[in-house]
Design a protein around this nucleic acid. Structure first.
Lengths: 191, 191
DNA sequence: AGGGGTTGCGCAGTATACTGCCCACTTTCG
DNA sequence: CGAAAGTGGGCAGTATACTGCGCAACCCCT
C-alpha cells in the first residue's frame, strides 16, 4: 500500500473554473469548432472536450497552445469571464496633435463576444492611422457630428453626420477629418 | 511503434519562462525556503526544485496551490516580472491636513522582490495612521531630515535623521512627527 | 430518409507531472 | 571544526494529462 497523499481532485482551483468557460466562449467568438481549434492548437480534440467540461487539470503549455490558436493572451484564459479592466473606462486613450482631438473608451464588456465602445473626436485635418487588427475583429462607426473619411486599404468612405458604417478591421485603415468642423463619432470594436 | 506525435518540450511556452523566476522571487520575498513553501502549498519540494529550474510543465492546480501559499494572485505567477503600473510614479498619493505634508511614490519595481519606494514629508504634529498590510509585507524607513516617531502596536520608535528602521507591516502602525521641524524620510514597502 | 458537421464520451496506450527518499554540495553560525 | 539549514539532482513509483480511435447523439441541410 502506498503512503503517497495526493491532492483532492474534487476541490479544483478557482482558476480552473474560469478556464473551461473562457475557452468555449472564445472558441465560439472565433467561430471555430472543436476540431478546427484542435488542429490549429495541436491539442487533441479529446482533450479540448475534457477541458471544456472542466474534467482535466490543464498544464501551462497546453493552455498556452490553446491561447495562441485563439489569438488571445494567456491571461485571458484564466481570468474571470467578466473582468475587462474597469479602470480604462472613461480613460483618455489618445490625444492628437490638434488640441481637442481625443479618444475616450466609453464601455467595454465581454458578453458572448468582446466589445469596446469608444467616443472619438477629430479636429479638422486630424488623421488617425490604425494598424490591422487580428482576423475576426470588426468595427462599427456612427458619426453624429461633422463628417468622417474612413480609408480602408485605398478605398475611401465619406460618412456624414447620422451615417453608419461597419467593416472588418483586419486591414490597414485610417480615420480622417477632411471637413472644416470637428468630427465626433462612436466607434464599436467587436470580435 | 507508436505514431503518436508529442509536443516538443524544447520550445516551451513563453509563460513558463516567467513562472520559475516569479516563484523564486516571491518565495524569497516571503523569506521562505523551498521546504517551507512545499509544506505550506502541499507541493513537494522536489517539484518546486524542478519548477524553479524550469524543467517541468506545471499544471494549473499545482500552480494555484503555490500562488495561495505565496499569498499572491494566480496571475502574478504567470505575468512578466516587471509590470508595476508606471503611471503611479511621481503620483501625489496623499496630502495631510497641514500644508506641505505629502506622500509621493518615487519608484516601483519588481526586481528580486516587490518594491515600492516612497518619499514622505511630515510637518510638525502630523500623523499618518496605517492599516495593517497582508502578512509578508514589510517596510524599511530611512529618515534624512527631522525626526520620525514610528508607532507599532503600542511600541514607539523614535528615529532621528540618518537613522534606519525596518519592521513587518502586518500590524497597525502610524507615522508621527513629534518634532518642531518637518520630517522627511524614505519609505520602502516590500514583499 | 440520408449525408455532412458538431459534440460528448468510453477505452487503451504513452508521456509526464508529481511524490518520497536518497545523497552531495554550499553557506552560515557557534 | 562540526551542526544545521538551504539547495540541486538522481531514482523508482504512482497518478494523471494527453493522444488517437471509434461510436452514438444531435443538429441543419436537400
Amino acid at each position: 500500500m502506498s503512503n503517497i497523499v495526493h491532492k483532492d481532485s474534487s476541490q479544483r482551483a478557482s482558476v480552473l473554473q474560469h478556464v473551461s468557460q473562457n475557452i468555449r466562449r472564445l472558441r465560439h467568438a472565433g467561430e471555430m469548432s472543436q476540431s478546427t481549434l484542435a488542429q490549429k492548437s495541436g491539442v487533441s480534440r479529446r482533450m479540448l472536450v475534457a477541458i471544456e467540461a472542466g474534467e482535466k487539470n490543464v498544464s501551462l503549455t497546453t493552455l498556452d497552445l490553446i491561447a495562441q490558436a485563439l489569438q488571445v493572451a494567456f491571461s485571458d484564459l484564466i481570468k474571470a469571464p467578466d473582468n475587462r479592466d474597469p479602470s480604462r473606462i472613461n480613460e483618455l486613450a489618445w490625444t492628437g496633435v490638434h488640441p481637442g482631438s481625443k479618444a475616450v473608451l466609453l464601455a467595454s464588456s465581454a458578453a458572448s463576444r468582446e466589445v469596446e465602445l469608444w467616443e472619438w473626436r477629430l479636429e479638422p485635418g486630424e488623421v488617425y492611422p490604425c494598424e490591422p487588427d487580428a482576423d475576426g475583429w470588426s468595427e462599427q462607426l456612427f458619426v453624429f457630428e461633422g463628417c468622417l473619411t474612413l480609408q480602408v486599404e485605398g478605398q475611401q468612405h465619406l460618412l456624414n453626420a447620422g451615417e453608419f458604417f461597419t467593416f472588418a478591421s483586419n486591414r490597414r485603415y485610417a480615420y480622417r477629418n477632411d471637413g472644416e468642423v470637428a468630427t465626433r463619432f462612436v466607434r464599436n470594436v467587436v470580435i
